[in-house]
Nucleic acid binder design. Structure first.
Lengths: 251, 251
DNA sequence: CGGACGCGTTCCACTCACCGGTACGCTGTC
DNA sequence: GACAGCGTACCGGTGAGTGGAACGCGTCCG
């Protein structure tokens, strides 16, 4: 799944061997996951430690703060994040539910920020994490406002059923997308995670056509009613959109 | 400043050539900053692009989202961030001023999170960024609650004068540290950035002795009075501390 | 207009950094 | 006490990586 015939490839493979849930991986586990010979892993991991991208502890390796620093400098995410934060903040304060900011990358959603309080719903999303587009509110609203080539690419691909509620019928999904395009809102009802509901609104580009990002509010079945927050989400998204439009340089 | 005699070293040097403020660097600029031959930079940068760590645009290279993803998986920062976020959120809501979460790394402060609203004070700090310890509230409070070896190492090193208000007299600084250790609070008054005031409190370890992190509230000279928020900051920090202590596995 | 720059790209022969099999020492565990 | 799994260390062969040189652009001069 990675190019392993170059040092760099091996190094990246090692780093990516850490899944979103992994904190500490012993050398042997890295060997297993990458398929690289033991000696090689040892050496390359040592190099990575030297460069502060990896940290070596008694019980294994972990991703080091050098990576965190570099990651936070990634250009697009950073500026978007900086401009968006106050709006997300406001939205959280108004709703006191989990707030997400996401962008499209290929045929997936990448979450740029996630903020929530003590009572936030348990959700699998993470800042920096990825999710499919067809079963999340942010994904749907981004897809609806994307170029038609992207839309058809996603609809053509396999639509994984993540829960019994996941919409897998292309026709129904397309209908929801059309509606999202009209209303500027997309919903998710336990389609990615049981017990979670979500509303999302697009952050539109200067031209008002394509979405550069999307904002959502998530809450648990029961106390949470998506419709109750749809206006707040839309307001936050459009406010962020026009602020971004006012920025020189863009992005 | 970096090991340049290995592919990995060159790659890391390229990535680190991007300063906190840089968004787009042309190849020639990378050549200048790294001192590497043009051909080499071209090739290595190409490799990095292939691995989604770098992005190539019309006008130069930028750090890509692959880095962002990896960075957000860095173990220590991530769990701390996840647990802390609700507390930072509360603190922001109570004060509506810029809130920071920072940890010590070597003799510097690394900001793990920064949240603020529309009216936040202009500060040079960034999530993932670094600052000296002796001229920031978070730095001081972390230093006060660190092993004495760290304290003396910092006090021995050169204390850069960043503003006319920066405390550079080791005696006075030490006095402030002692006071911080007693009261569990440290202050900064335009010592790192003109026009900015700050209060910080330590997030203490299980044993209550060493600080694993620190929380601060920052605001502009004029409307902002650090003392008015010191209790809120301390409350947030201790609440976070005891929550962390309750966690299995630690960190 | 021509020449001189700065930039990104491509090429290629040399060579040294990288490779990975092998072997060692240390822990537990049956 | 044999064994299995782990982390570490060694080392000769070799091809991935190297970087100097040359090319094709634009652009800014005189």
């Amino acid at each position: 799944m990675e190019e392993l015939d170059t040092v760099l490839g091996k190094a990246v493979a090692l780093l990516r061997a850490f899944g979103p849930e992994d904190r500490l991986l012993p050398l042997a586990e890295l060997v297993r996951r990458t398929g690289l010979p033991k000696g090689t892993v040892h050496r390359v991991a040592g190099d990575l430690v030297r460069h502060r991208l990896l940290e070596k502890t008694e019980h294994g390796y972990r991703l080091a703060s050098g990576l965190f620093e570099l990651g936070m400098r990634a250009a697009t995410e950073r500026t978007l994040l900086e401009v968006a934060m106050p709006f997300l903040q406001d939205l959280y304060e108004r709703t006191h539910e989990t707030v997400h900011l996401g962008v499209r990358e290929g045929t997936e959603v990448v979450y740029v920020a996630k903020i929530g309080g003590h009572r936030q719903a348990r959700s699998p999303s993470r800042a920096g994490g990825r999710m499919p587009m067809h079963c999340t509110a942010i994904g749907k609203v981004l897809l609806a406002h994307a170029e038609s080539s992207v839309r058809s690419a996603v609809l053509a691909g396999p639509l994984a059923r993540r829960t019994p509620h996941t919409v897998v019928a292309p026709g129904l999904l397309e209908q929801q997308l059309d509606r999202a395009l009209e209303t500027g809102l997309a919903f998710e009802r336990e389609e990615s995670t049981p017990g979670l509901l979500c509303v999302a609104a697009p952050v539109l580009d200067t031209d008002g056509a394509t979405a550069v990002a999307a904002i959502s509010v998530t809450g648990p079945v029961g106390r949470f009613r998506p419709e109750a927050h749809q206006n707040a989400v839309r307001a936050a998204a459009t406010a962020l959109g026009s602020t971004l439009a006012r920025r020189p340089g863009g992005l």
